[in-house]
Amino acid sequence: MEFQNLMIIALGAIFINNFIFSRFLGICPYIGVSKQLDSAIGMGMAVVFVMTLASAVTWLVDHYLLSPLPINVFYRLLTLQQPPDLVFLRTIAFILVIAALVQFVEMVVQKISPSLYNALGIYLPLITTNCAILGVAILNVDTQYSFIESIVHGFSAGVGFTLALILMAGIRERLELAEIPKSLQGIPIAFIMAGLMAMAFLGFSGLKIGM
């Protein structure tokens, strides 16, 4: 039952509510780095990695520091009369946590695996202002996912993002050879193709998984 529920979240995030084609999150890197398959894969992997981590960390921050729950750390340590309600700090806290996380990941990857750093390194700094990361953190909290559900959602949202990026890069590489009206070259044609792809993904929205 639990497993089935996680599968529903995963498939939903990859296909039905694909971050690019249905939720419109992470469009900037989508247009920016989908020109070549190699860079698309690199960026996609970096996003999956950071999104999964960010989902876990922001969930912990939200539940143990910000929400007025009995498990609130301030409530426990400072023996307050009631758990403090700090949810208004959510946006600031999340964006700072994500920025710090990205820095940290960059440092760790550089130390541990220089080859991985070479592959992902240039994409990591770009990720802080990728709205897909903050978006997944806020969505986790808004839908009241549990810790495990948040991680699964973060991971599969990243996979959905990567899927979109790779599909797009594959098409754009072939498009190099096509004859496109001058005014539509570059970003406009990328959007038009994304529109056609979004139509295909719209077909998934009627999927009833396990409901």
Partner: peptide, 12 residues
């Protein structure tokens, strides 16, 4: 969603 992409593409 597709309409959003198409409109922006053509407007750009």
């Amino acid at each position: 969603p597709p309409g959003a992409f198409l409109t922006i593409g053509f407007v750009l």
